[in-house]
Simulated scan of single mutants.
Amino acid sequence: MKTRRGAPLWVTGGTRFAGMPSAQARIGLVLVLVFLVACLSAIVSPGPRPSVDGGAASTAVAPDAPPPGQTDLLLYETIVAGVRGGSPYYAVAAETQRSGHYPLKPFFTVRLPTLAVVEANLPPLVVKLLLLALCVGTILAWVARLRPAMTGLVPLGAAGLLVIAGLYVNLDASFVVFHEVWAGPLIALSLALRRPGHWLPAVAVGLSAMLIRETALLYVAIMTVFAWLEGERRETLGWLAGIAIFAAVLAAHAHAVSLVTGPLDRVSQGWSGLEGFGFYVRLATISSGLDILPQWLASLVLGMALFGWLAWRDAVAPRALVVFAAYAALISLFARSDNFYWALMTTPVLLVGLVFAVDGLRDMIAAARDTRRITVTRVIR
């Protein structure tokens, strides 16, 4: 027996949990509580640290000790400055990473040249304005995408503010050289632009994200699988074409890196951090507006945001949720504590799920509390 459905609060059309059987709703509430407890593991998770600790470096005596104060931010700024000065990208990147005692092997320890070359050939103010325009465009695209699903201006305004909160780090111009600061909003924008039968802009933006940060391939692969499962043949081919272009660029990148590296260059220590789900939650909270909250509260809010994405009954919701889950798994299993910026690939629209959590949680609680019984009365004549 299904339960009665309540009137929509913030989301039109109801959530996935509206009218669900009471027994399933009770199980669902227990699973939500278990998930929130898992999110609280962020409290004891090791916090992020810079790739090189300046304080420790200053006291190091090893011959290959990194220079004092060396950070990823300084590394990327130095590369951009070198290219702006007229030096070839790969020569600058190799020398900068070598002098900073960064690995040069395997080839993907060197970022694709796209972002550095673009920033080097534009005035710094223009670069900052471009990042701002990207963030504003992402906000407007998601407001337009969410408008039909919202019951009024209040939930729509709340959704817009949540996108702004998710872009908390991206709106800081001092991080303009970080690749994830650009790739994250591009992924979010691609998600917002994708419609059944209208996929070309989404593919183009997704390809742009891959050409800036290679890990955006995970997002494009997920979108390809969804298109294939839904029988969208042309869209599937479009995403595959984007992957093919990226693969060709990556192969050329690998060859270019091999020309500027030698047998004595450092090899990466690998990506096997195994920091756990709590590490992802912690990185996602400090990489968004949740950073102003105590860690325990920020963890619970992030957990409810993910629950909200599950509640929303729309084609973009499962795509977004799988993308978040995939990057969460990637970070939980492979990210080291100095890879703190990986979470920026998911944070731009993650918090939007909170607007769906309002109706979703209400529907689930209402279903769990429904104690209606069917009484059969036998009439004897």
Rank of each mutant, 00 (worst) to 15 (best):
A298W: 05
A227S: 15
E119S: 09
S272A: 15
M210Q: 09
Y102Q: 11
A23L: 15
G100M: 10
I187N: 06
A149R: 12
V44Y: 07
A317C: 10
I243A: 15
V136M: 05
L129K: 09
Q97C: 02
A252D: 06
L33G: 14
W10P: 03
Y327Q: 01
E180C: 02
A216C: 12
G308H: 07
A366M: 14
D314K: 09
V127L: 08
H198S: 14
A366N: 11
L171S: 06
A248H: 00
F175D: 00
F277W: 11
W10I: 11
V110S: 02
S268V: 11
V169C: 09
F279C: 07
G273A: 11
L134A: 09
P201L: 10
G19A: 10
R194L: 14
R266D: 01
A93M: 10
M20E: 01
A42P: 07
L321T: 08
A335V: 01
L207W: 13
R5W: 02
P46G: 04
L153A: 15
Y102L: 14
Y76S: 06
L162K: 02
A42M: 03
R16P: 10
V267P: 05
V257M: 07
R98D: 01
E230C: 06
S272Y: 13
P113Q: 01
I212H: 03
P21N: 11
L211R: 06
I27A: 15
R145V: 11
Q97V: 05
